[in-house]
Structures are given as structure tokens and as C-alpha cells.
Computed example of a mutant assay.
Amino acid sequence: MPKAKASKRPLKAPPTSSRRSPCPVSCALDLFGDRWTLLVIRDLMLGRSRFKDFVSSPEGIPTNILSDRLERLLEADIIRQIPASDGGKRMAYELTEKGDSLRPVMKSIRDWGLAWEPGTKAILQQS
């Protein structure tokens, strides 16, 4: 397996008490191993960027859970807030370099679902 590229910034490790173990799989699951977080990341990869965009996804994420997941992703430096493109006072979100590096992972999950889960279909074919 190729090594991950070194980050341009030092990694901020979460407090040891919030990690179940130093295992990289466990640590990654601590960030996005719940029912909703990867769907928010998927939506960002599909070009959605506003709170209302995430709420309107077909899975129907509750607004309180969405707020929590966005905050966690911000704290983990997976997403960042940016001014909305329409000039409104509400903020939008975009993936950071760290978040965008999940693209091949998301593609693999999508491809696995298409191959093994009957009746699934991809909204858009990501590259």
C-alpha cells in the first residue's frame, strides 16, 4: 500500500481519550464511521455546499444531526466554511485537501455498492 503524502501542516491529534485505539482504521471510523458523515462528504463531492442542499438529499438527514456532523468535519479539517457564492450571509462548505483525499475511498465504496447491492445506482459517476 502506498504511503499517504505528508501533510503541509502538522496533524492535530484528537485528545487520546477520544480515540479508542491508535489503529488508523479505528481513528478514521471515529471521524466518519457513523450513518451520516460519509453522505455529507458525498454531497460535497457532488457539488452541494449549503446546509439546505444537505438537508434536501434523499436520505433525509435531521437538521440537528447535520449541524453536529458539519461541526465535527470542520474540527477535523475535512471541510471548511466559505462565503456562499450567491453573496448571501449564510456560509457554504467545501472539502479541504484532507477531505478531498477521500475521493478514491468514496469511489471504492460506490463501486462496491454498485457491484454487490442489487438495485443501487450512482447519481453521478465521479472520477
Rank of each mutant, 00 (worst) to 15 (best):
M1D: 00
K3N: 09
A4T: 09
A4Y: 03
A4C: 07
R9H: 15
P10Q: 12
L11E: 15
L11Q: 15
K12L: 15
P14F: 11
P14V: 15
P15R: 12
S18Q: 14
R19G: 02
R20I: 09
R20Q: 08
R20S: 07
C23W: 07
V25R: 05
V25L: 10
V25Q: 06
C27R: 13
L29R: 06
D30T: 14
D30H: 13
L31N: 06
L31D: 15
L31C: 14
F32I: 15
F32P: 04
T37F: 03
L39Q: 13
L39I: 09
V40K: 04
D43Y: 02
D43F: 00
L44G: 00
M45V: 04
L46W: 00
L46D: 06
L46Q: 02
S49A: 08
S49L: 00
R50W: 03
K52G: 02
D53I: 04
D53V: 06
S57D: 01
S57K: 03
S57M: 09
S57A: 14
G60T: 10
G60L: 04
T63A: 02
T63Y: 00
I65K: 06
I65A: 11
L66M: 06
L66T: 02
L66V: 05
S67C: 03
S67I: 04
D68F: 07
L70E: 04
L70H: 01
E71I: 01
R72N: 14
R72I: 09
L73H: 02
L73W: 02
L74F: 11
L74R: 14
A76Q: 13
D77K: 13
I78D: 01
I78L: 15
I79A: 07
I79S: 03
R80N: 10
R80C: 10
Q81L: 10
I82F: 01
I82T: 13
P83I: 00
A84Q: 00
D86Q: 10
G87C: 11
K89I: 04
K89V: 00
K89P: 07
M91C: 04
A92Y: 08
E94F: 12
T96F: 05
E97D: 09
E97N: 05
D100W: 08
S101G: 05
L102M: 13
L102S: 05
L102Y: 07
L102K: 00
R103W: 00
P104N: 07
P104R: 08
P104D: 06
V105T: 12
M106E: 05
M106H: 03
K107N: 12
S108Y: 09
R110G: 10
D111M: 04
D111F: 02
W112R: 10
W112A: 15
W112Q: 10
G113T: 06
G113C: 14
G113S: 11
G113A: 10
L114I: 07
A115I: 01
E117I: 15
E117T: 08
P118S: 12
P118M: 05
P118N: 05
G119V: 08
T120N: 02
T120F: 01
K121Q: 11
K121M: 02
A122L: 01
I123L: 08
L124D: 09
L124W: 11
Q125R: 13
Q125L: 11
Q126I: 07
S127L: 03
S127Q: 11
